[in-house]
Design a protein around this nucleic acid. Structure first.
Lengths: 261, 261
DNA sequence: GAAGAAGTCAATCGATCGATTTAATTTATG
DNA sequence: CATAAATTAAATCGATCGATTGACTTCTTC
C-alpha cells in the first residue's frame, strides 16, 4: 500500500529522482500559463511536468467526486490522458498523489486569498478603526467570491474540500488549518465591528452566518444555477453577488463600506 | 445489473410480494418510535420492517459517504447488522435501495419542514402584510435549523443530498424539486419584504444569501464544532444560532420579528 | 401441531476492478 | 549515437463487486 515503504525495502528501485520530483511543489506551475502557440516547442526539456499537472487535476476531480478509496487510479489516468503507470512514476503511489492534491489545493487557495487574510491579521495586531476593519472584511469576502465562483477549477477545490471534510484523511489537517485561519481572522474582524469579544460564541456564530451568505453560492451552485436558469455563473452574476453580500454585511455590522471601490 | 429486469425474465422468481413491500412508503415508520421496553415482544409479526429500516438507514449513510457506485452492498448490510441477501430480498436490488433512500429523505424532510412551506405558500396566494411575511419566513428558517441541526439523522440527509448534488442520479429529481420548492417560497417572502420582483435575480440572490446564513452550520458543521470546541451541537447552541440568524434577518429585511415568541 | 409463508443466513457465482510491477519503447539532449 | 527521462502496453495477483442459491429458522394460520 505504501509505495515509499516498498521503495525502501527494495534498494534496486531507484526512488530518489522520483522523490525529488514529487517534493518540488511548483510542478508545472509555470507551465499552466504557457502561451497556446503551437510553435512553442520549448518546455520539452521537462515533458513530465505536463503529465504531472494533468494527473494532478484529474486526481483532484476524481478524489473530490468519489473520495480516496472510491477513486480509481485507472479512472484518474484515463481522464488525464496518461498511462496508468505514470501515477507511480511521477508521484510514487496513490497515497502520495492524494497528498499532492491536498497540498496543491491549499497552495492555490493560499495564492488567491492568502494576502487578504494576512493583511487583515497584520492590521488586527494594531489598533484599527471600524471603516478599516469593514474594508478588510470586504476584501476577504470579495476575494473568496471571486476565487470560489470565478474560476472553473475552484469547483474542484470546493468538492475536494467538502469530501475531505466528510471523511478526513491524514492530509486534511493542512486544508483544515488554512480554513480555520481564514475563519479566525474573519471572526476577529466581525467581533471588532460588532463590539464583541473575539473569543465569544456570539462572535463565532455571527461570523459563520456572514460567511454562509457567500459560501452558499459555492456549495449550492447547482441549485443557484437552476434557479437562475443558467448553466454557468457569468461575471455579471458574480458582481451582483458581491454587491448583494456587501450590502448585507453593511446592514449586519452597522458600518457601511467606504473607500476604494 | 437491474434486478427488476431479471425478475421479469424469470417467472419462477416470485417478484410480486417484494415489489409490494418496496412500494409501501411507510415501511417501519411506526416501528422507529417503538418503546425501548425489553419485554415488548410484539412486532415480531413483521420482523422484516426492522431489517428494512436498518438497511435503509445504513444505506443512507453509506450512499451519502461514498456515492452510489462507491457504496458496497456488503458494507451496507454489515452496518445494518443484516445479511447481504436481505437487500435483494427487501428492496429488489442496489438500485431500488438507492431509490428508496432518496424517497425516504424527502419524506423525512417533508414531514419536518413541509408544513412551514405550504403555510407560507398558501398565505402568499392572498395579500399578506410585512409582519406576517416576516413571521412566516422565520418559521421556515427555524424549522430548517431545528431539523438540520437538531437530530442526528439530519446529518445523514445533508450528506446524501450534497452527494446527489455532485453526481445527480435519476432519483435526484424528487429531492431537487422539493428543495427548489422551499427556495421559491423563501424567495417570494424575501421579495415581498424587500419590495422586489419575486422573479428578479436580485430577489433570488438575496434569498440564497439569507438561507446561506443557516445552511453554513449544516455543511460546515465540522468546522463550526472545531471552532466552538465541542463535538456536538447542544440545544443551547441551536437556540443561539436561531437567535443570531433571526436578528440578522431582522436587519436584512428591515422588518423586526414580532409576535408569537 | 402441521403446513406454509416470511425472513435470515452462509456459501458461492462469475465478473470486474484494485494498485502495482515489469519490460519494452519513445523522446529529447549533450 | 549514447544516455537518461518519460511513456507505454501488458501482466500480475489479490480483492471486491452485486447477485444468487438453497438450507435453515421463526412466525402465522388453519
Amino acid at each position: 500500500m505504501n509505495a515509499e515503504a516498498v521503495a525502501m525495502e527494495r534498494p534496486e528501485f531507484d526512488a530518489e529522482p522520483i522523490a525529488e520530483v514529487v517534493l518540488e511543489a511548483d510542478m508545472g506551475a509555470e507551465l499552466s500559463q504557457l502561451p497556446a502557440s503551437r510553435h512553442y516547442r520549448r518546455a520539452r526539456q521537462d515533458r513530465g511536468a505536463e503529465t504531472r499537472k494533468s494527473l494532478l487535476l484529474a486526481a483532484l476531480d476524481v478524489f473530490g467526486r468519489y473520495g480516496f478509496e472510491g477513486a480509481a487510479t485507472r479512472d484518474i489516468a484515463k481522464r488525464a490522458g496518461a498511462n496508468l503507470a505514470a501515477i507511480v512514476y511521477h508521484f510514487g503511489s496513490k497515497d502520495a498523489l492524494h497528498r499532492a492534491v491536498a497540498e496543491y489545493v491549499v497552495e492555490q487557495m493560499q495564492a488567491r486569498i492568502g494576502d487578504s487574510i494576512t493583511a487583515a491579521a497584520d492590521a488586527l495586531k494594531g489598533n484599527i478603526d471600524r471603516p478599516t476593519a469593514r474594508r478588510l472584511l470586504q476584501r476577504i469576502v470579495d476575494v473568496h467570491i471571486d476565487s470560489m465562483l470565478g474560476e472553473a477549477e475552484a469547483e474542484l477545490w470546493g468538492r475536494f474540500i467538502m469530501r475531505e471534510q466528510m471523511e478526513p484523511s491524514s492530509t486534511f489537517d493542512v486544508i483544515y488549518d488554512f480554513m480555520m485561519q481564514c475563519q479566525s481572522t474573519t471572526t476577529n474582524l466581525v467581533a471588532l465591528l460588532l463590539d464583541l469579544d473575539p473569543r465569544s460564541e456570539e462572535a463565532t456564530l455571527r461570523s459563520f452566518a456572514i460567511s454562509g451568505q457567500f459560501v452558499i453560492f459555492c456549495v449550492g451552485r447547482p441549485m443557484v444555477l437552476k434557479k437562475l436558469g443558467r448553466d454557468t455563473l457569468a461575471t455579471k452574476d458574480r458582481e451582483e453577488i458581491r454587491r448583494v453580500v456587501a450590502e448585507h454585511i453593511d446592514l449586519l455590522v452597522g458600518e457601511a463600506l467606504v473607500g476604494e471601490g
